[in-house]
Design a protein around this nucleic acid. Sequence first.
DNA 1: TCTTTTTTGTACCATTTCGCAATAAAATCC
DNA 2: GGATTTTATTGCGAAATGGTACAAAAAAGA
Lengths: 248, 248
Amino acid sequence: MVQKRKGPPFSGAPVANTVDVAGTAAGPGVETTAGQPAAPVRKRGRPRAFTPEVALSRALDRFRDGGYAATSLDDLSAAMGINRPSLYGAFGDKRELFLKAYERYREEVGGQFATAFDPALTLRQSMERIFATALDVYLAGENGPRGCFTVMTAGSEAMADPEIRGTVLRALASTDKALRKLLELAIVRGELPAGTDVELLVQVAGSAIHTIAIRARAWTPRADLEVIARRAIDFVCAGGAAPVERRR
Amino acid sequence: MVQKRKGPPFSGAPVANTVDVAGTAAGPGVETTAGQPAAPVRKRGRPRAFTPEVALSRALDRFRDGGYAATSLDDLSAAMGINRPSLYGAFGDKRELFLKAYERYREEVGGQFATAFDPALTLRQSMERIFATALDVYLAGENGPRGCFTVMTAGSEAMADPEIRGTVLRALASTDKALRKLLELAIVRGELPAGTDVELLVQVAGSAIHTIAIRARAWTPRADLEVIARRAIDFVCAGGAAPVERRR
DNA sequence: TCTTTTTTGTACCATTTCGCAATAAAATCC
DNA sequence: GGATTTTATTGCGAAATGGTACAAAAAAGA
């Protein structure tokens, strides 16, 4: 909904992890304590009986399982522990809640992936962290692995909703960008040869993450996904030259 | 739903393209003229006012846009040109219709991809056909590009429905298998060096198809997708060694 | 021509879904 | 202490959804 900030992509642009949901301002915003001093200043009116971030994370959990249409307001209000008027009051209608939940996903997962892009790490360490994080995130879920929200949930809604589509595209681009930056840095530091085809490596790594996301939601065993990840990591860390050595 | 046959995967196992929907037998099957001689033999009772295959293709079209939950029976019966009781009579309930539509997708698209696996073609010709077909299929749609049904529609339903999940897994495996076979044949025929890392190439090609599917539904311009395709084709046809040459 | 079979069309049903009105509760302000 | 403000609760309404009963229509069979 609020397009004034990029937010982290689904798989880890190295961006500061700021929880700035309070900046939504328009309509029933999601108020957080982040926007208020720690002093016991209290707003008039009955206090909320729930914590918006916690409730939003619960909603995200439901949406991740069921997608948009198959997740009802009853499902959501039960999971969030609030009644429907409260839900509407705090988050807006169903679509607005979905958009907020998606942003939340991107923040949470973005934070997790951000650690993999720490410049203090070697290229291989980064790649291993990226894929380990992807596996952890995509294989998580009370009711079974759910894959990646951007690919498997928002992605499906993309053609029906221009705003979701826009966010999906931004997420995809952000991933590509982060990978590109990582690889270019690796070249500067001599971890990769000077003429490395960065775009090929970005593509191989990025699409490996995508195929893992798809397969995870189909409940492909973790071991199989690790094979895919290992192959992509080895390929990239060898600057795309691994197959040449492997042949002998 | 009927698991006794593999059917073509979403991106082209080289399998005979037989329209055998009539084999469903169980419950209200989808009758086709394929199962009946061309003689004017006629069953008792009022004849159908619609052609099941045509209706099913229409249903597939709707499901491809909206996914399972967001596509209502009203949407479907309107698109198919039949009333709900007729829909139930011919195809079963909503879920059964979805499963049949998915199988139909696999048959149709499988047939299209099958031509790319013709052994009379060179490896490069095959690869170019595979990706051209993928682009055509994933970018098609009256209301905009819809990506791949297996990835973007059935894939999202995979965790909620074990049968869909099973079909998705089979489709993914079938793609891998077809690519593997293609590459192994290319080695036998000397199009690829003897020690080529086939599994790496299968992964790169397969995941390129996946990332294209995702991006297509987010309405990434065709030119951008063609860049991805071109890169994967060049990489594979060089036996994974393209980056080495490219570096100089 | 009447009976049987299959399909179509109309109407309906029970439930679900999304969103909201009204009232009560819990806090601050004057 | 009463007024105001914000949130929680209860209940509801309109519409949508998936599925079905039944009568009529259209064909083959006896």
